[in-house]
């Protein structure tokens, strides 16, 4: 199992009131599996993704990454886990505006004090971005930006890839290309992936679709 959520809840308190953003959710993601999470806004799907990505610690329940319980690790250790074992693809790509394409990938090397310059070139070449290597994000198209973001998520060779609405800023054709690219990478290299999306047209690319409402898993 790449990722296991065990009876996970996230509770926010507002005075006497209690709000369960995620309510007693259990989920297992196998190696090579690509899961989509859908649901209306405010359903708790982003909170669930944040817990899966070690960005947020759950109020109740346990989180296992690669078999290791990461629920109660220190902020510093959690940061290292994210850096080394998880790849993120954010909504609207969220590239750093002042870094050229090659430096978007090199950044991850700098943060983890490693040298994978060759790998970053290979990745960019693989994604058809070799000719854009010295461009800034604002010089790229939306699809190119999202492909750079995927390359960035893959540079540290993570076991788990998390994508937050990767198609949000793209038209349907580009959106589908990006999700297919993501699915190929996950399957071909035996990784696991979770994608939060609104876009029902790309669900067929995923192995499993989880629908979430009011913090609970409705159907799998």
């Amino acid at each position: 199992m790449s990722l296991v959520l065990e009876n996970v809840s996230k509770i926010y308190r507002d005075g006497p009131k209690e709000f369960r953003a995620v309510d007693d959710v259990s989920l297992e993601v196998k190696q090579g599996e690509f899961i989509a999470i859908i649901g209306p806004s405010g359903s708790g799907k982003s909170t669930m993704l944040s817990i899966a990505g070690a960005l947020l610690s759950p109020s109740e329940g346990e989180v296992y990454l690669q078999g290791e319980n990461i629920t109660n690790l220190s902020t510093k250790k959690i940061t290292e886990k994210r850096r080394d074992q998880i790849g993120f693809v954010f909504q609207a790509a969220n590239l750093i505006p002042y870094l050229k394409v090659k430096d978007q990938l090199n950044l991850i090397d700098v943060l983890s004090k490693q040298k994978r310059a060759k790998r970053s070139i290979e990745l960019l070449e693989h994604f058809g971005l070799k000719h854009r290597i010295n461009k800034y994000p604002n010089e790229l198209s939306g699809g190119e930006r999202q492909r750079v973001a995927i390359a960035r998520a893959l540079i540290n060779d993570p076991q788990l890839i998390l994508a937050d609405e990767p198609t949000a800023s793209l038209d349907s054709k580009r959106g589908r290309e990006v999700v297919e690219l993501l699915a190929d990478e996950i399957k071909n290299s035996g990784k696991s992936g979770i994608m939060v999306t609104h876009d029902e047209r790309v669900l067929d690319v995923c192995d499993r679709v989880i629908s979430i409402r009011d913090g609970k898993i409705e159907k799998q």
Binding site: Y12, A21, G42, S46, S50, L55, L56, R82, D164, E165
Partner: peptide
């Protein structure tokens, strides 16, 4: 907070 990278989460 790094959670700010994910929109709509952690409110």
């Amino acid at each position: 907070d790094p959670i700010e990278a994910i929109e709509g989460a952690g409110k």
